[in-house]
Amino acid sequence: MSTFRRVATISFNATLRTYLSGSNLFWIVAFPILLSFLISLWLGSDGDTAVSRLGITYETPRGDQASREFVRVSKVFGVYLIFCFSTLLTRAGNLHDERRRGTLQRTLVAGVPYSEIVAAHLVSLILVGALQAVIVLVGTGLLGTRWLATGWGSVILPVAGTIFAASGIALGIAGLLRNPGIVQLLAGGAPSILALMGGAFFPLDVAPAGVQRLAAVNPMYWAMEALSGGFVYSGWASQAAPMAILFLFGVIGMVIGVQGLRRFEP
């Protein structure tokens, strides 16, 4: 059996197991869709409430009506960010969980090298994230969020960047921590805090200078930048820098993860 097929088999199995659990399905996809829907209830479609109240003309930087959807899309995207990170950080502990169960050892005895298992773990993180993104985006889209108002690129790039960065960071955490309690705590609390400090729910302008500077090391801030770059500004040209930074987050996380997981090699 080739390396590719072994990695594919293991990662597919891990992804399948994630989505076979009813409670996972609820927390990974159903709850974010429900929450996004409830949030979007309070948001108008164009978001220029101040301007319409005052009766002067308003234009978005792109100059089209579609980009006014950003107000709603950005909040729903904020919810998606929280659940994407929380899901993938929770999955970060999977490899250690397999070690505790004994299935990791069983896989090794089946002749699969440890490096392939780590690679499959990373691929499964990306697959879990991608599947979650598809379900949440389609679900919230059906409930009224116009993701594609300004074209596919506006949303697909930030989502892909987010999944890559979150998967890398999750692998990094798996390499640093093996205590499931700490990983769980991190997965439960950190994403909400990162979202708030990354400007996912309110503009960062209101935050003090120090908090604004901290945003530079917050992947959620860059994900929001990539979204606004696509929706509000010049598209790909505005998205390139935040996408590169998200990619960097992912790569750094993966390097830390791979190095760290080598310590735990049986």
Binding site: R100, R101, G102, V109, A110
Partner: peptide, 17 residues
């Protein structure tokens, strides 16, 4: 390893499957 089968002490099975 190709010649052996191993039965670990813990329940090394996936309960979701």
């Amino acid at each position: 390893q190709r010649l052996m089968g191993v039965v670990p002490q813990g329940l090394a099975v996936y309960e979701e499957l």
